[in-house]
Design a protein around this nucleic acid. Structure first.
Lengths: 211, 211
DNA sequence: CCATGAATTGAATATTCAGTTAATTAAGAG
DNA sequence: CTCTTAATTAACTGAATATTCAATTCATGG
């Protein structure tokens, strides 16, 4: 004789819940297949409830981008690179940036959809730009540290950071085209090597530093 | 008293014409906004005509990817790097790869849409993989040439080529976030510098080649 | 305890969607 | 000139779409 037992939640809980479902729907069906109806069905709620919270689909879209970018920003803040010894540190940093956890955070397939939106949507574009700027700033600070320690020879750390972001994104985009695990790991290793080369990294042993 | 004067075209002309319009619609409205109706309206033809040629929308999609990838492949074939002198050649190659013409060929915004499709669509995924493999092979051949000439110190040219493709795509994806022209050009220059570093390029002057 | 407002629903809106079927038009072959 | 065939349109269909609006259920604070 149990009543359906529907739990009422407030906006603070419901909105992100809807956004996550929206995101998941985009992952599974693409942005072209993510309708309000489908999102509602997945959550067992009424489509109107979604409209109640977001007014329009477009609105929901920009709030989703916002949500994701915040999540990303949080991750950025919590990157833990403990080592102070510069050689150890640079390797740890690259290990984190090319780690699986880093890439599991968001689903690249959905990110592509969002990025494609950013081309037509000024607001979304700005949001992404802000995210990348944040990311760049974080990396630039690290690079500066390595330059001060004299273990890399990059020019302007800001510009190098941008190139680095580019490479990281490029890697993210390509990863999924490598099906077999071996070549995937090799690709990852080669990426790290490439970055070190690119930055003019001088390894520990053989302390030759002419010029 | 002029009749509307509709010209009849055969499939050979009509199909690519439809595909181009489909592509343009995706550019302007995103894949989520590219319906058969809109494509037909843009061409002043009847939606059924599109169905006549492609049967299903999904079919049209894969044919579009095919079309684009062919175009890309043609571009690849026509890359003209004339110089034989290796130093000249490597610079010319990088100039071409980071040239405006190269990036004007397809619209990155639509490419993103397609790539996002590739995550859910096995056929599309394969098509992209093939394209990138082609591209990688082309670059690997060039890299081999530079290695033989002893002006770069890359390890396996195939792997380095993959990294290079990654970087090129990363650049393509980021380009549009740089609005002002100056920083855009600086970014481009820095990219080239990064690639040369990455490949362990040794400039002409000061022919020191110890090891 | 009741009044106010938020959460949620139901039914109805007009619109757009991909796709079907049948008819019409024109081009090319004989 | 006619017959055949391919290109094109016209008129639909049914399902799905986003969105609106009024009604209802609940929580809570005065």
């Amino acid at each position: 004789m149990n009543k359906p037992l529907k739990i009422r939640k407030n906006a603070e809980l419901r909105k992100p819940e809807i956004l996550r479902s929206f995101y998941q729907t985009i992952v599974e069906e693409g942005i072209e297949g993510a309708s309000i109806g489908k999102v509602a069905r997945r959550m067992n709620i009424h489509p109107s409830l979604i409209m109640h919270y977001f007014s329009t689909k477009e609105n929901m879209m920009t709030e989703l981008v916002n949500y994701i970018i915040n999540e990303y920003g949080n991750l950025l803040k919590n990157i833990s690179v403990h080592h102070d010894e510069p050689h150890e540190r640079i390797h740890q940093l690259l290990d984190v940036l090319w780690s699986d956890e880093w890439y599991r955070l968001t689903d690249v397939s959905a990110d592509f959809s969002m990025l494609s939106v950013s081309f037509r949507h000024e607001k979304v574009n700005r949001q992404f730009r802000h995210l990348y700027a944040q990311f760049g700033k974080f990396l630039a600070k690290e690079l500066q540290r390595f330059m001060d320690a004299g273990i890399i020879a990059a020019g302007d750390p800001d510009v190098s950071a941008e190139v680095l972001v580019s490479l990281i994104e490029g890697y993210r985009h390509f990863k999924h085209f490598y099906v077999d695990k071996d070549s995937s790991e090799r690709f990852r290793q080669e990426m790290k090597r490439a970055v070190l080369n690119m930055l003019g990294y001088r390894p520990k042993r053989a302390g030759a530093g002419e010029k």
